[in-house]
Design a protein around this nucleic acid. Sequence first.
DNA 1: TGATATGTTATCTT
DNA 2: CAAGATAACATATC
Length: 292
Amino acid sequence: MPELPEVETIARQLDEVLAGKKITKIDVLHTKSFGGKESDLVGMEIDSVARKAKMILIKCCRAAPTLRSGQAVSRILVVHLKMTGQLIYVENSRRIVGGHPTADWVNDLPSKYTRIIIDFDNGAKLFFNDLRVFGWMRVMTNDEWRMANDRLPSDVVDREFTPEYFKSVLAKSGRSIKLILLDQAKFGGVGNIYANDALYKAKIDPRRKAKELNDIEIKELYIAVKKVINLGIKYGGASVDKYVDAVGVGGKYQEHFLVYQRNGEKCKRDGATIRKIKIGGRGTYYCPSCQK
DNA sequence: TGATATGTTATCTT
DNA sequence: CAAGATAACATATC
């Protein structure tokens, strides 16, 4: 159930190990999880792994055969983990894990929830697991990806995400500020953890209508969003769940939550009790004392 | 049994 | 038509 920091973390780690590897086989165990043709990718080499919004982009290329134009044939394997997707790279005893934190991170694979397995020429495997099957992997051509990407807004970590743009978005909406932060059509990357923490950091009540925030509050919130997202990246994302850390895998941002999942606990600023409510059906945590 | 879960999106309803 | 609210996707856990 990753947000931008979690996706960024796994993308960076996969980039390190996958660049230069050749795909030798793709097993689709659950057809709903895979879009496109596996055969388009088999034999291709990974150029790099990147991220856009909450998607992981595995860029593949083949130097030969080339198209008549002389361009290298290339594809992008786009991955969205949604709520329960996970990517696990296994090379001998080495593991790189990302996404939904469960026992699959450390147990034998494939598991009950393994949907796709990609084999590489060095014997390593990349497992795509997804309990609830909302996530997907899709093969796209460069053109298809470019068209899809053109329809997406900038991410909150991008240069194009400016204070002015943020302000213009908020001014147009009568919905609660919390829902706007979560709206991936406005700007990409913020999910429930970081939306809650950013609002706490900016001392803004999550129920406030977006258009009713004043200029100072908007500025504070803009800074807070950037800060919590970057802090999330710094800690390798959050791995909320059970045990995971026992084996030293997963991110550490969960140790730095400001309000997320802290209902009933004391506000770190003024000692008041953190409250949990629902906004748009999503759990929302805030300090009723200092978030106005 | 019922509510909840770090996400999107299709489908109602104003 | 558009903004906003809600259901839906599928499954485990509290």
